[in-house]
Design a protein around this nucleic acid. Structure first.
Lengths: 343, 343
DNA sequence: TTGTATTAGGCAAACGGTTGCATTGATTGC
DNA sequence: GCAATCAATGCAACCGTTTGCCTAATACAA
């Protein structure tokens, strides 16, 4: 049905190899022959068969993004979901296709990812940190398969490329922002689930407070479940206690909303008597009243970086592993619109 | 490096074709030979090269999901994002891989999708309704390429398969719910952006109200921008007018939140004096105070359906087009916890 | 003029499977 | 006891491109 390189060759009166060379801009072909070939391709509406091409080249020119099914649910993980656009964009830009595969489900002993890798359907793979385990890393490392991890993977036994946002810096700018806005007793409200993220944020928070002369014993980190009611309750208790915070840095939108609610309940004015800030930038923070100051993560750029790094590995197997941390920015909104400290 | 079918054949003392037949469970092979082949495969850690396979079979056993870059942004479109999990699951289950491609960006005259299709890299494609245009449909139809549209595509000139949620039914159950909860003057607050969705929902709303003896002139549909402040303002105005609503069905979470805020401002009690309901099930509706009743859409199932329908088309080119509408359910929350009408 | 580069392009093998057809040996029916 | 059937497997062509190697023709230097 659709025409092949041979059809084009015949019509242009040359051999298939010549057509191939024109297609790939290899070798030296006369202008005259070239134009005859282009004309033939036009006439036959020729489009190269990519599967045949990939087969001949021994490379599918495709990368895979592994998804974590645990992310599926009522409220999609927007962190992941936005990165995918960046990954697709960078892949496309470099002439690669993007495949999506499920990380966990295994069929007949080997998982979907492994099948993709071993079956040579992809040149490289982007893996979410949530799905990484030592076993997997060892396998990847053993066969020297190009791989980039989405998330800080610094506790791995093997040297891996990864990209993440700089959570230490995020914690730092969060704390700095609160200090600059004049808040004095700034607590950190963390949900106990996402340890890896929060450890760095807490470190950044703590370091910044210390740098501003706030002793360690006045740095308070509260761990609770990722539940708004617990946040309301816990912050409520704290507000009623002698060492009440006047500002809370929260690891998620729902905790921030809870803190806000507790403050209102306690009769405090936001942002004047109490301020709060969220690390998640979601619709919740935007629609809350008052709107909630938050940290902006460029997940699109995160995806771009991951894909670019992966493709670099694919095209240069000798390239060394890289670890990239992306900076974040703060989006000031009503929940921390306090009087400037410096003024 | 990695072993091929020939290596396995040599080790097992048979011809490559025999190995292939065992692999594909075709023809009749003796148990004895089979076990020798399996053993050889094990020993060599043989995994078939899928690219070569796809090439030989003339089918990549891959489907594509086209994404709309317009969906990328601060707040990801969770409708799309969850469907992808369903699509991947169904594809995987049927032995297909899933590719993601950008619908708009074009390189050298043909777009990424077209290249995937014409380059034979995919067997079929799932297209979001937001990206569909007549030109595209005609092309697809012309080459008879398997395609399923994600979204109701009933205004197309060509017969297409599509899958969507049943928005008429959603509008109906929303209205029915409000009526049963005892609300009398139920308005519909629609954002003017998403016409196609809302037309059906409004139809369902209106039909249900009429069926319950509420005359058309008491059915009010308000169109505003998708902006919370406009919703607060507009609903505020209405609440102050003689024909104030006591219940509002909102096309999105932010409009519902705005309606709720307007009611509180007007001194109404929710849900007793005023009720509201959202079509979007998002974290916003869950975290709002009061929590907002909403319509639950099973986007995972939507993805499953789309992929299954597509694969059916791929495997049986003679199969006829199908249009599927998925039912929705209502999730009752505080914003409509009115006294039951019937009690 | 001869020898050497250089340019243009053909030939055929190779990539790793799949499959129609042919072949062989064993089994069955009459 | 012979033809017909069938199970088990091999042979070789084929899928559409790429590419190393080779050749012919032309250009240029000596």
């Amino acid at each position: 049905m659709s025409s092949t390189i041979k059809d084009v060759a015949r019509l242009a009166g040359v051999s298939p190899s010549t057509v191939s060379r024109v297609l790939n801009q290899k070798g030296t072909i006369s202008e005259d022959t070239k134009s005859r070939i282009y004309q033939a391709m036009d006439q036959l509406k020729y489009v190269p068969n990519d599967i045949a091409r990939n087969f001949a080249n021994g490379s599918p020119r495709t990368i895979a993004l592994v998804i974590d099914v645990a992310d599926a649910g009522a409220y999609a993980n927007s962190f992941f979901n936005n990165s995918i656009f960046g990954i697709e964009t960078a892949a496309h830009r470099n002439g690669y296709s993007l495949m999506i595969t499920n990380g966990s489900e295994a069929f007949g002993g080997i998982s979907g990812v492994e099948r993709l890798i071993l079956g040579k359907k992809v040149d490289g793979v982007i893996f979410p940190i949530s799905l990484v385990n030592q076993d997997f890393l060892r396998k990847i490392d053993e066969i020297h398969f190009p791989c980039v991890i989405l998330g800080k993977a610094d506790e791995c036994s093997v040297d891996m490329s990864w990209v993440d946002i700089n959570n230490i810096q995020a914690g730092t700018i969060a704390a700095r922002h609160m200090l600059r806005k004049g808040y004095k007793r700034i607590f950190f409200l963390s949900d106990s689930g996402e340890d890896a993220f929060n450890r760095d944020r807490i470190y950044g928070y703590s370091r910044e407070l210390s740098a501003n002369g706030i002793p360690t014993e006045e740095q308070r980190v509260i761990h609770i479940d990722a539940d708004i009611n617990q946040a309301v309750e816990r912050i409520g208790e704290l507000l009623a206690s002698p060492d009440a915070p006047d500002g809370v840095i929260c690891s998620s939108d729902r905790l921030a909303l809870g803190a806000l609610r507790a403050a209102v309940k306690a009769g405090l004015k936001v942002p004047d008597g109490f301020g709060c800030l969220s690390f998640d930038r979601t619709a919740v923070t935007d629609l809350s009243d008052p709107t909630i100051t938050c940290i902006d993560v460029d997940t699109f750029e995160l995806g771009i970086q991951a894909a670019e790094m992966l493709i670099e590995q694919v095209e240069d197997p000798m390239s060394s592993m890289r670890q990239v941390l992306l900076s974040t920015k703060i989006i000031e909104r009503q929940s921390t619109a306090h009087q400037e400290h410096s003024q």
